[in-house]
């Protein structure tokens, strides 16, 4: 099987639907390509949170950028509310962006250092030409206030704020146009642990308040489990496992997911700690030439000959719980 089934794997009426998505980047001075995302399909229902977990180099950030139309796919489609966003003319895509926003990992780098944060938060309204200047200013201030940035701090430059404050500004900027979809790309991992929890709780509050659909991209299992309804585990451009958070945390099926869970030190039910820790050997292979067959086989504790020869099918091991592994079976 060359690509995972185009069948989607979530609710009947999804707000985001990704089908057979591939994003390959050319390598300078070579005919090879980096296969950052290499055949991913999924859907997210309105109001839900999908957590995408992966190591660095898994292609999860590229996936996040494609979801909000920042990187065009090499193949496959990204649909928001049933419409292929990359089929839209450039101008139309820009107009639609207000509905799907993204928060980046580095809160400092995402803000123009030469603009006061209030101007940055007002900018989406300026671009959309919504209301008069005074109204935009007021709306930006209200949104900043909502995320915990006061009027005095709004007049500052990014370098005069702390990391957590800057991420609050980025959140305000993304939400000021009232989007229905928010992609958070490692949105808390650059912050101090003590501030991470504040920001995560802010996300949850805002989700309830604005009815947001989240895609939360992270390498941090605990974060993903805390806020997600469903979890997708990504490895070298592919999904390895996908299913409800409860099912995955209780009974992970894929050896990669098991390894990730066993490496997690805290915040997980204690019985995982009793299992022998599965330690992943070696580095994540190059996305330029991923391993044949199953991509995870080079680091997999249960890999067999079949894994090199044959690519595992994307199959539904339990209702709503999908995996790509020849051997894993559901205990349920």
């Amino acid at each position: 099987m060359s690509a995972p089934a185009a069948r989607t794997t979530a609710a009947a009426d999804p707000i985001i639907r990704v089908q057979a998505l591939k994003i390959h980047f050319p390598v300078r001075g070579s005919d090879e390509t980096i296969k950052a995302v290499d055949g991913v399909s999924f859907a997210v229902a309105a109001g839900e949170t999908l957590g995408v977990i992966g190591e660095s180099g898994s292609g999860k950030s590229t996936l996040g950028r494609a979801l909000v139309g920042l990187i065009a796919p090499s193949a496959g489609t990204v649909e928001q509310r049933g419409e292929d966003i990359f089929a839209l003319p450039a101008r139309e895509l820009r107009r639609r962006r207000r509905d799907f926003q993204i928060i980046f990992q580095d809160p400092h780098a995402a803000l123009n250092p030469r603009r006061r944060v209030l101007a940055s938060v007002r900018e989406p309204l300026d671009i959309a030409r919504e209301g008069g200047t005074a109204e935009r200013q007021a709306r930006a201030l209200v949104m900043l206030e909502r995320v915990g940035i006061g009027a005095e701090q709004a007049e500052r430059y990014p370098h005069e704020l702390s990391g957590g404050q800057k991420q609050r500004v980025n959140i305000a900027r993304a939400l000021v146009l009232r989007p229905s979809i928010l992609v958070a790309d490692e949105a808390t991992s650059a912050l101090d642990v003590s501030i991470q929890a504040d920001i995560l709780n802010l996300y949850l509050e805002l989700q309830a308040e604005f009815g947001l659909t989240y895609v939360c991209i992270t390498h941090d299992l605990a974060v993903a489990m805390h806020i997600s309804d469903r979890i997708a585990v990504m490895y070298l451009g592919r999904f390895m496992e996908y299913g409800p958070t409860a099912a995955i945390s209780r009974a992970p099926l894929h050896p990669y997911t098991k390894a990730l869970l066993s490496a997690e030190p805290v915040a997980l039910p204690s019985r995982f700690a009793q299992d022998a820790r599965i330690v992943l050997q070696g580095e994540i292979p190059s996305p330029i030439a991923p391993p044949s067959g199953c991509r995870f086989r080079t680091r997999c504790p249960i890999a067999a000959d079949r894994c090199a020869a044959e690519e595992p099918a994307w199959r539904e091991a339990a209702p709503g719980h999908w995996i790509a592994c020849h051997f894993a079976v559901s205990d349920a």
């Binding site: 993204i102 989406p124 993304a174």
Partner: peptide, 26 residues
Amino acid sequence: QELYVEAARAIGAGPVWLLLRHVLPN
């Protein structure tokens, strides 16, 4: 290549806006 340019693209800025508001000043 700066992230704030990509971030501005994400909020719907067109090429002229990006050039004049984000790239040129920096």
